[in-house]
Amino acid sequence: MIRLLHIEFIKLWNNRASKVLILAYFILLACIALIASIKFNIGPIKFHLAEQGIFNFPYIWHFNTYVAASLKFFLAVVIVSMMANEYSNKTIKQNLIDGLSKKEFIASKFLTVIVFSLISTIFVFIISLLLGYSFSSITEPYHVFSDLEYLIAFFIKLVGFFSFCLFLGILIKRSAFALGFLFVWFVGEKIAYGFLRFEIEATKNNWESITQFFPLESMSNLIKEPITRLGAAKELAKQVGEKYSFDYAVHFHELLIVVGWISIFTILSYTLLQKRDL
């Protein structure tokens, strides 16, 4: 396992584009901390974001994982190209001839995805802990370490998204086209979502029971948007007279759907590699 990771590490770290993107990703992750410094001073209105409760335990776990997940596109580019480049350089052929089995080849890529996701999760955990202890009004261990399921959701979400990228890299073999396809897929899912919502809602009220199975939709369902959960936002809604109640929690069946997609993408990637002549 270490050998497979080492092989992939050599390939990635010697590629300048990948190196820059990976570094940029982790630097941007660290920059979440900078949100704390957002302050407005417009006449009598004083606004300091860090004091709005976004860094309160345990809410911070939800907020930070949500923000951090939006940076995943940086790594998506790295992962799509690490797969597609093997095809365009034909190095995949050489790797197999040199004695890497097809299973090992997929495993080395998939392990890299796991490691990236794991490091991101640990990174977010540490940053959130530091930010929380500096700004949170609540620091009792009971509150600090509750709602940690958001970190699990974050990890699964990243692995899911990156395995999708890996699969597209193998399927399409060209990084630019694979990323384009990812976008088209995203738009397609949204259209299907909208269609189902308006067509089915009239008769039945269960359109979400279908859309929750879409790959990208299922991943974004894992961590719902946290903004409306903020005290300030709730206040605002109350004044306007709007009442809403959302379910923000991470559900086990949602995790299960994404884990299902991870296995599907990995198995499909392997099957594709098995069947294709190089």
Binding site: K11, Q94, I97
Partner: peptide, 16 residues
């Protein structure tokens, strides 16, 4: 294949 040395068609290596 680990005991075999092979080159086929064009040499394929990581250009960077």
């Amino acid at each position: 294949l680990k005991k075999v040395g092979a080159i086929i068609e064009r040499p394929n290596f990581y250009p960077y």
